[in-house]
Amino acid sequence: MADIFREIDEDVRRDRAIEFWKKHGNKLIGLAFLAVAATAGWRIYDYNQTQRAEAAGARFEHAIELSRAGDTDEAEKEFAAIAKDSTAGYEKLARFREAAEQAKQSPAEGIKTYDALAGDSSVAPVLRDLARLRAAMLAVDTSSMDELKSRLQPLLASGSAWGANARELLGLAALKAGDYDAAGKAFDEIITDRTAPPSLKQRADLLLGIVRSGPIKPAS
């Protein structure tokens, strides 16, 4: 008797499966084809992206070699080209290197490119702050203290990765201008900053010693 019920149950399940296939078979086949096509498309895309990244890496290395060889003009052109038509990662790196090459011949052009990076919302915040710092480093000899402070103010906020570097630059500019109080304040803030790198704290300590010794008086 149990065998009869089992056979009936199997027949019912088979009939249901046939009925389900009649209703949804074409849809299942279509979904299967879509899955295969999507997988193939992703593999093609991934392969193309890998090829582009490898090509961009080779071009970037070539541009660095040009820079090391002193061929600044060609290095700048190559970095500019990479920045325009390369993958996202190398595009950002190339823009930074382009600015560095420009600064060798024209600090003003380097500042302009760094400022563009600092204002580009597609660039990671920490890199935008780095661009601000490098622009300020180029502008330190030609800017007033107020202009320099305006450039570096965004980096002085709590938690900034480049805050200690910004304070060092402000301290050096103040020291050069003869403002020993402002210079001492900047260097002291670096020393008491728990997040500042040890090497930067050591430099600040040495510079603070110069500040404490006061201006060098001319020999009588």
Rank of each mutant, 00 (worst) to 15 (best):
R132Q: 14
R151Q: 14
K149Y: 12
K185C: 04
F79P: 04
R194S: 15
K77A: 15
Q51L: 10
T142Q: 08
R14W: 01
E91D: 12
A136V: 05
Q105D: 12
R134I: 03
R52T: 10
G89W: 03
Y45S: 05
D146A: 15
E147G: 12
Q153Y: 04
L31F: 12
H62S: 12
E189L: 15
L66R: 09
L133A: 07
H24E: 08
G70K: 09
A118H: 11
I29K: 00
P215A: 15
A88Y: 11
T195N: 12
R6H: 07
E54A: 13
R194W: 10
R59E: 12
D181H: 10
L93H: 03
A183I: 13
L200M: 14
F5C: 00
R68P: 04
V36P: 05
F33E: 02
T192F: 11
G184Y: 08
L133S: 06
K149I: 11
E76R: 14
A100W: 00
R203P: 07
K104S: 09
D179N: 15
D11T: 10
I191F: 06
E147A: 15
Q105E: 09
F187R: 04
P154S: 06
K201D: 04
N26L: 05
Y90M: 04
R203V: 14
I64H: 07
L207C: 04
K112Q: 08
A40H: 07
A161Y: 02
S143W: 06
G119K: 01
E109G: 02
E7Y: 01
S199R: 07
F5Q: 10
D141L: 03
R68Q: 15
Y45C: 02
P125H: 12
L117Q: 11
V12N: 00
D205Q: 14
A161E: 05
A63M: 07
L31Y: 09
R6I: 13
V211P: 06
A139Q: 06
Q51P: 02
E147F: 07
M145F: 03
L34G: 09
E76T: 02
A103F: 11
D9Q: 03
N26H: 01
Y90C: 00
L169G: 03
A40G: 15
K27W: 13
R132K: 15
E10Y: 09
L117H: 09
A173F: 11
A37F: 04
A80P: 05
G209E: 08
L28D: 08
Y180F: 14
I4P: 00
A38T: 12
F5N: 05
A219N: 13
A75Q: 02
T87M: 02
D193S: 13
A53G: 00
